[in-house]
Simulated assay, not measured.
Amino acid sequence: MRPMPEVAIVGAGPVGLLLGLLLRRQGIDVLLIEQRTTRSGHTRAIGIHPPALAVLDEAGVAPDLIAAGTKITSGLARSGGRELARLDFAAVPGPRQYVLAVPQPVTERVLRTRFLSAGGRVAEGIRIDSVYDGGSSVALCGHPTPGSGIEGKQPGAASGSVRFEARLAIGADGAHSAVAQAVGAETTGRKYPDTYFMGDFADTTGAPDTALLFLEREGIVESFPLPGSIRRWVVRTRRLQTSTVADELAALIKDRTGMHVDPASNSMLSAFSVRSRLVRRMVNGRVALIGDAAHEISPIGGQGMNLGWLDAAALVPIIAGALGGQPSSAALARFER
């Protein structure tokens, strides 16, 4: 039997994968625990900002993602058919003067491949139900998800359950974090009245490297280029859409911007509302929360993913120091701030 990992990370999305990879590059033994056994093909979080690209450089994956992505080098604001403002990202300090657009499945594939090749381990098809901090280690217990193919029990686990143990545990399992619930994390937050209707279509704008913002009386429309001559459109709506139909979104885009998108070219649709949520404590003993598990914000522009990556980068040296026997209380206090 392999010894228990030094760090168990719950959640193998972009944030958990990057944290795992950064830790492996420090020589730390990592186990990723993931509820899903399959991945969505939808583009989802697409925007990678310059500070996050610097972290991806540290992980050694930035070149692969840049090669797979589209560089957004400018922004254009319009209203009523008139140009209001133009922003050139060439003025941004640093070596990366663009926002990189990469579909989330591609980002996850690149990170996962590099994590596994670095010696990381992944346990899939397991939902964590409880977390117990024993003082010198953390026990995480859960159950196999339907269709996971995991049967039986492990030592120390109840019948039909699965148990893991690690010196430290990290919850990177999203806005509905099972780890946050298991440790009883207190949260503050609010729901906003903003609702949006979003979809990906073939790009007909003739602006393959420009983000577009339409400030219209009927509501804001945002648009971002993607690889493969695809474009993300995000339309603010008066209420949350109860059905998502490509023709309806195409009609909204046409009515507000005058731009035609082909409904037949649609490859993703989503309707969502916006809320913010913040845990009162990101660190609970030997358990820490990062990304949306700790602080949920608007998903537009990949903000949550980027902030989660910055969490990961800040946490890695603290974890390495703690595992090496260094005092970590002051560093953890700074991390939480």
Rank of each mutant, 00 (worst) to 15 (best):
residue 260 H to F: 14
residue 23 L to V: 11
residue 221 V to D: 04
residue 233 W to T: 01
residue 136 S to A: 11
residue 7 V to I: 11
residue 30 V to W: 13
residue 287 V to K: 04
residue 137 S to Y: 15
residue 335 F to T: 00
residue 219 G to L: 02
residue 13 G to D: 02
residue 38 T to N: 11
residue 202 A to I: 09
residue 273 S to R: 09
residue 162 V to I: 12
residue 240 L to C: 07
residue 113 T to H: 05
residue 107 T to C: 07
residue 184 G to Q: 03
residue 217 R to I: 14
residue 78 R to V: 15
residue 248 E to N: 15
residue 28 I to C: 07
residue 219 G to M: 02
residue 198 M to C: 14
residue 91 A to Q: 14
residue 324 G to Q: 13
residue 295 H to I: 05
residue 141 C to G: 09
residue 105 P to K: 03
residue 53 L to T: 06
residue 187 T to W: 00
residue 269 L to N: 01
residue 310 L to K: 00
residue 89 F to H: 03
residue 152 G to H: 00
residue 127 R to G: 08
residue 274 V to C: 03
residue 21 L to Y: 04
residue 284 N to E: 15
residue 27 G to Y: 11
residue 231 R to E: 02
residue 23 L to H: 11
residue 281 R to D: 08
residue 112 R to G: 03
residue 205 T to N: 06
residue 132 Y to I: 06
residue 313 A to S: 10
residue 126 I to M: 06
residue 236 R to D: 04
residue 187 T to A: 05
residue 210 T to W: 13
residue 195 T to Y: 04
residue 191 K to A: 11
residue 192 Y to P: 02
residue 50 P to G: 09
residue 202 A to P: 02
residue 264 A to Y: 00
residue 186 E to H: 08
residue 127 R to L: 09
residue 24 R to E: 04
residue 66 I to C: 11
residue 141 C to W: 05
residue 25 R to W: 13
residue 306 N to I: 05
residue 224 F to A: 02
residue 330 A to K: 10
residue 285 G to W: 06
residue 337 R to E: 10
residue 14 P to F: 09
residue 259 M to K: 10
residue 247 D to F: 05
residue 80 G to N: 02
residue 284 N to H: 14
residue 151 E to H: 12
residue 199 G to N: 03
residue 325 G to W: 13
residue 202 A to V: 11
residue 279 V to I: 06
residue 135 G to L: 08
residue 153 K to G: 09
residue 7 V to P: 01
residue 109 R to S: 11
residue 311 D to H: 00
residue 150 I to Q: 00
residue 175 A to F: 08
residue 294 A to Y: 08
residue 311 D to F: 00
residue 72 I to M: 10
residue 43 T to H: 02
residue 81 G to T: 05
residue 313 A to W: 00
residue 29 D to V: 11
residue 116 L to N: 03
residue 222 E to Q: 14
residue 246 A to D: 09
residue 312 A to Q: 10
residue 147 G to S: 07
residue 202 A to D: 06
residue 220 I to Q: 09
residue 232 R to E: 06
residue 151 E to Y: 11
residue 177 S to E: 06
residue 307 L to F: 09
residue 147 G to Y: 08
residue 288 A to P: 01
residue 12 A to V: 13
residue 80 G to M: 03
residue 249 L to I: 10
residue 147 G to T: 06
residue 128 I to M: 09
residue 81 G to I: 04
residue 22 L to Q: 13
residue 284 N to L: 14
residue 305 M to N: 01
residue 209 D to C: 04
residue 55 V to G: 03
residue 273 S to K: 05
residue 66 I to R: 15
residue 151 E to N: 10
residue 229 S to D: 14
residue 275 R to G: 15
residue 294 A to Q: 08
residue 288 A to Q: 03
residue 266 N to A: 10
residue 113 T to Q: 09
residue 176 H to K: 15
